[in-house]
């Protein structure tokens, strides 16, 4: 069985091009349409400018200023940006950000596998479909407070590990230089993966059952079906979720860091977004905080641009 994705045939007789006179007569109508379209778009543009562009421009301006406490500020040129290269805390935060970004494949693949299992109605799929989404409905700050207890040296995770004879694995999760960051990412993944499962399930619903059935009848196993059928057909959804995760892991984690580690121990879980907050509101260094924020913006933009471009290409590619 095969499914044709060829475009429907067009009319047998090509429509001749409009004569210049007729095109000229259409102009007033086109203009009206254009103005009407512009009018419809205007509220969205106004909102975007007011709430996105203006704050961003103000942030950029502030990043070139030097402030003392909450007092007046003065022009500082590029000082705030050059200062970042000598600041070990800033460098540590961006190094941590890269480590977090390196976990992206897990963020993308893990929910996909679960979504496919649910989609294929694996035993208990109804139960898991509901359960997986529950963590996403818990406020991240609450998740952080919860996991601070769960991951404590004498908390339930370590108690469980000791009970089943895995004493060496019962480490101080939030105290280690690497384990703290790993724990933070794991908690974040626990909190957000349900959204990924839902996103993929929505994408999977667009794949015709016949395709999956055909693959099954052709003898394709679970992983074969996943990588040879599901992933190619879900490419736009995967790209969308990847973009969301790529930016999300760098700008969604604030409440978790705040409740779980406050960037510690030392700077082990310090990420740029938390540093922006610390620098601006606790150290009262607004100019420097804004500069770090702009650096983070560029970092996220660079990271996302490839995925967005890929998504755009996928979305605008004409079917063959």
């Amino acid at each position: 069985m095969s499914i044709s994705t060829a475009p429907a045939k067009g009319p047998a007789v090509a429509t001749p091009p409009s004569p210049p006179g007729r095109r000229a007569r259409r102009r007033p109508g086109h203009a009206r349409e254009w103005w009407f379209g512009a009018l419809l778009v205007l509220p969205a543009v106004a909102l975007a400018v007011t709430f996105k562009v203006v704050p961003l421009v103000r942030g950029v301006i502030t990043s070139f200023e030097s402030s003392s406490g909450f007092g007046d500020s003065s022009f500082a040129g590029l000082d705030n940006y050059t200062r970042m290269f000598d600041d070990p805390v800033v460098l540590a935060s961006f190094r941590n950000a890269l480590l977090v970004v390196a976990t992206l494949p897990v963020w993308v693949v893990f929910p996909l596998v679960l979504a496919v299992l649910i989609h294929q109605r694996a035993p208990g799929w109804k139960f898991f479909r509901a359960v997986y989404f529950i963590p996403y409905t818990i406020a991240p700050i609450v998740v952080g407070i919860m996991f601070r207890q769960i991951l404590a040296p004498d908390g339930p995770i370590n108690a469980g590990l000791r009970a089943i004879g895995l004493e060496p694995l019962a480490i101080e999760w939030l105290n280690g230089q690497n384990s703290a960051l790993f724990s933070l990412v794991a908690v974040a993944l626990w909190s957000f993966f349900g959204l990924g499962v839902m996103t993929y399930l929505a994408g999977l619903a667009t794949i015709p059952d016949e395709v999956m059935e055909a693959a099954y009848l052709d003898g394709a196993g679970f992983w074969r079906r996943l990588f040879s059928v599901v992933v190619p057909m879900l490419r736009p959804t995967v790209a969308y979720w990847s973009v969301l995760c790529a930016s999300g892991v760098l700008i969604w984690l604030f409440p978790l860091i705040y409740a779980l580690t406050q960037g510690g121990p030392g700077n082990a879980t310090m990420l740029p977004e938390y540093l922006v907050f610390l620098t601006t509101f606790q150290f009262l260094d607004r100019g420097y905080g804004s500069a770090i924020g702009i650096a983070l913006f560029v970092f996220v933009a660079v990271l996302s641009i490839f995925s967005v471009r890929h998504m755009f290409t996928e979305g605008t590619r004409k079917p063959r």
Binding site: R148, D154, E172, L174, P265
Partner: peptide
Amino acid sequence: NKNAPSITMLPD
């Protein structure tokens, strides 16, 4: 306490 580095004095 062992978890001192990862908790706050108030309330933990």
